[in-house]
């Protein structure tokens, strides 16, 4: 199995990074390109960009962000939010993203997973699941559906998803640790890798979830102090999780 991955997630709206990036060392904390490069230099294994304001009119803005990021980044990155068709996926991947992440669009049309996987391979398709009370939620976790979480994860993988990005709504933003039980249940149910998301508040939290799954998504813990990423990686390694060896440049 490849090494565990630490994946900072950047929320982007109208071409700008939003939500809680506090750091005086960056000239422009809102610039997705500068922040992406900074996290890459700090040892991030991969990045996720989530277009949280995604509207059809916004797609050109996001495409140009993706291209600008691809030109400076030498680590893989995934783009989610606003991918609703094969054409959207082509646009994003041809602009330089490695993978697209599908959420509500995959629920509405599970065939979309297969269509994108046929074109680019399963490794290029992530299905993001916002889970709470045993069911999948949409609209940023606000609206519950009747779709059960585990069966949906299994279906998504069987339709061609190459990875599941699993967010526990109840844990998200609280920084009290990941939902280990849910993560383990989904990981046991599928044979594709699973990224755990929601709840990272300390190196110990991240280490705990990396003992049971392949990758951890981190947000506020790193956005609060982007320069602390190398230190966070070291702490996680001291807790017994092997991460890739990097020469941090920050």
């Amino acid at each position: 199995m490849p090494l565990a991955r630490l994946i900072p997630c950047l929320d982007v709206a109208h071409g700008r990074v939003v939500k809680g990036v506090n750091f005086v060392g960056l000239r422009d904390v809102g610039d997705p390109v500068e922040l992406a490069k900074f996290y890459s230099d700090g040892g991030a294994d991969e990045l996720v960009f989530l277009d949280i304001a995604a509207t059809p009119e916004e797609s050109a803005t996001m495409t140009s962000v993706v291209a600008d990021v691809a030109d400076v980044l030498e680590i893989p990155f995934t783009v989610g939010g606003g991918v609703r068709s094969v054409e959207d996926a082509i646009r994003i991947i041809e602009s330089g993203a490695d993978r697209v992440s599908l959420n509500s669009a995959a629920l509405a049309d599970p065939g979309l997973i297969t269509a994108i996987a046929r074109r680019f391979g399963s490794q290029a398709v992530v299905v993001a699941i916002d889970a709470g009370d045993g069911v999948v939620h949409t609209h940023g976790g606000r609206v519950a559906t009747t779709t059960r979480t585990i069966p949906w994860a299994v279906e998504a993988a069987s339709r061609g998803a190459g990875e599941i990005l699993l967010t526990s709504i109840a844990h998200d933003g609280l920084r009290g640790g990941f939902d280990l039980e849910l993560t383990a249940a989904v990981r046991d149910a599928v044979s594709v890798p699973v990224i755990a998301s929601g709840g990272a508040g300390s190196a110990a939290h991240v280490a705990d979830v990396l003992r049971i799954t392949d990758a951890a998504l981190i947000a506020s813990i790193v956005h609060e102090n982007p320069a602390g990423l190398p230190g966070l990686r070291r702490e996680i390694q001291e807790l017994g999780i092997e991460l890739r060896p990097v020469k941090e440049l920050i």
């Binding site: 090494l3 294994d45 991969e46 680590i75 290029a124 594709v192 890798p193 392949d214 890739r244």
Partner: peptide, 21 residues
């Protein structure tokens, strides 16, 4: 293992870790 094989892994005999998908 998990398929797709995603992530960084060391390559022998070259030593360094590279990204696989």
């Amino acid at each position: 293992g998990r398929v797709p094989r995603l992530g960084w892994a060391p390559v022998e005999p070259w030593g360094d870790a590279y990204y696989f998908a």
